[in-house]
């Protein structure tokens, strides 16, 4: 059901309500699991806690299974192959940063979120999180200006360099800063390969096929295939900063429509999220 979600993507449509509901659920899960993390817990255990929490609340399918990264793995230090993204037996220690990343599908709506935190105080990660605000603003502004995605990617990169950080979303498959998400048909059982739900992969593949014919791509990357204006739809945006063994990211859905009004042409699905609240509190 790769919908041509253009006209119905108004802020109050039922479609978006569904996406908003699952995104909130995912962030609730992240906060609940983060509150339970304690010294000695492993990444695998943290990933399982997310999975179980969401399963209990009716999640049956995934865009991808939950990830958890602790310590310098939050900055993907020495990541060479994608298998290294999967949770390991690394144990959490006081002061360590962590990132929880999950993409549940609920009622056919997909969310993909990233939640950064630390066990106790970690001033470096606090700073990284505070500096992510500028990226959230920059991305929205330039998407509204309908700049090519590749150019926006480069501008995000430039801001990171100016802030003195390393671009860590480059470590993701295809170096993506964002990817499209969509509705997924509910099946009785849902298979996944390498942690990614087959239904969602199917959606992504069919988007890729369409996009290839029409000159756009569901993956927002630094490469030539992203050299096109923002394609209407839902984009899970995940800028990821790294600084000397500490990483921080947020991930949330950016809605892009074909509206001529800049305000309505792109907006964040939900502004009531932990990191956004945090920035508001700091002001």
């Amino acid at each position: 059901m790769t919908t041509a979600v253009t006209g119905e993507l108004r802020a109050e449509s039922a479609e978006l309500q569904g996406f908003r509901r699952v995104q909130r659920l995912a962030y609730e899960c992240a906060e609940a699991v983060a509150a339970q993390l304690e010294p000695g817990i492993t990444e695998r255990e943290a990933a399982r806690m997310q999975r179980e929490w969401l399963r209990e609340r009716g999640v049956r399918d995934w865009f991808h299974l939950p990830f958890a990264w602790f310590g310098d793995r939050t900055a993907f230090v020495k990541f060479r192959i994608p298998l290294q993204f999967f949770p390991t037996n690394r144990r959490l220690e006081p002061g360590m940063p962590f990132i929880l990343d999950m993409a549940p599908v609920f009622d056919g709506y997909t969310a993909d979120i990233g939640y950064s935190g630390s066990l106790g105080i970690n001033p470096v990660q606090d700073k990284l999180m505070a500096d992510l605000e500028a990226h959230r603003e920059l991305i929205l502004r330039e998407v509204r200006e309908r700049r090519p995605l590749r150019e926006i990617y480069e501008n995000v990169d430039r801001l990171m360099v100016r802030q003195g950080y390393a671009n860590r979303h480059r470590a993701y498959p295809f170096g993506v800063i964002a990817h499209k998400v969509d509705r997924v048909r509910q099946r009785r059982w849902s298979a996944h390969v390498f942690g990614f739900g087959t239904q969602s992969l199917k959606g992504l593949a069919s988007d890729a096929l369409h996009g290839h014919r029409e000159g756009w791509s569901p993956l927002w990357s630094p490469y030539r295939f992203s050299d096109h204006p923002p394609q209407p739809g839902l984009w899970a945006v995940e800028p990821h900063l790294g600084f000397r063994g500490t990483g921080a990211k947020f991930e949330e859905i950016l809605v892009v429509t074909d509206s001529a009004d800049p305000e309505e042409s792109a907006f964040w699905l939900d502004d009531d999220l932990p990191h956004v609240r945090r920035w508001a509190e700091e002001k």
Partner: peptide
């Protein structure tokens, strides 16, 4: 601005 940034991050680490 860049120098100030370096100093600020240096204090953090």
């Amino acid at each position: 601005e860049a120098a100030a940034r370096t100093a600020e991050m240096s204090r953090l680490i």
